[in-house]
Design a protein around this nucleic acid. Structure first.
Length: 206
DNA sequence: TGCCAGGCCCTCTTTAGGGCCTT
């Protein structure tokens, strides 16, 4: 059975290209419909956390000053994730920081990301919006802790992913949902969801 | 907010604009 790694970063800003750095990372492993592993750590990059971000995440400059060095944390996180396919909510954001923080320790990403936000737009088109907090309530996912902390957000994203996989399995009578199928679904428009799954199933059958 | 992005999607579209989502 395939194992997926769901990751979430807290950061000092929106883009590493403009100097933002990670302040916390979490990764949870998902297999057989359940969370089977967890990793979480604050990380010290030396970067300043603006007051707005401190307020948003509850992660202060004092907290990260006492945290392990970013190099140590990223090596641990990369080892924990291994080669498992990745998932994140609005993955384009976490992918940038994953790639940037790995590169700083001489490592490279080995796998693709699937995005739970793009999937939710297709699977739950009638949700009020597709923010993680809204989807957690909409899909009746248990609240795992404070929003905007990495482990809570990663766990809720993982459980949201499992709900969406159940929805796909029920709707299309699938026995399992692979990372490859998730990537195929997120690459088509909402209207093409059904045709996409059918194409995928035909390819699998050949 | 120590001021910044960018990929994606929808539609009153495609020779474009604007909103969403992440911190």
């Amino acid at each position: 059975m395939e194992t997926l790694a769901v990751i979430d970063f807290e950061t000092t800003g929106m883009s590493p290209e403009h100097g933002a750095r990670a302040t916390e990372i979490a990764a949870v492993l998902v297999r057989d419909g359940a969370i089977v592993g967890r990793y979480q750590s604050l990380m010290n990059t030396g970067a300043y956390i603006p007051p707005f971000i401190e307020e948003l995440t509850g992660i202060s400059n004092a907290m990260v000053r006492q945290a392990p060095p970013a190099e140590e944390v990223m090596r641990e996180a990369a080892e924990f994730v291994g080669g498992h396919p990745l998932v994140a909510h609005n993955a384009s954001f976490d992918r940038k920081f994953w790639d940037d923080e790995l590169a700083r320790v001489g490592l490279e990403r080995r796998q693709d990301f699937a995005c739970s936000m793009l999937l939710a737009r297709r699977i739950y088109p009638d949700a009020p919006n597709h923010k993680l907090g809204t989807l957690v309530e909409y899909a009746r996912v248990p609240v795992a802790g404070r929003f905007h902390r990495a482990l809570a957000d990663a766990e809720m994203t993982a459980n949201l992913l499992l709900r969406m996989e159940e929805e796909l399995m029920g709707r299309f009578r699938l026995e399992a949902v692979s990372h490859e199928l998730l990537r195929a679904i997120q690459a088509v428009s909402r209207r093409e969801l059904e045709a996409c799954v059918e194409r995928y199933l035909r390819k699998e059958a050949v």
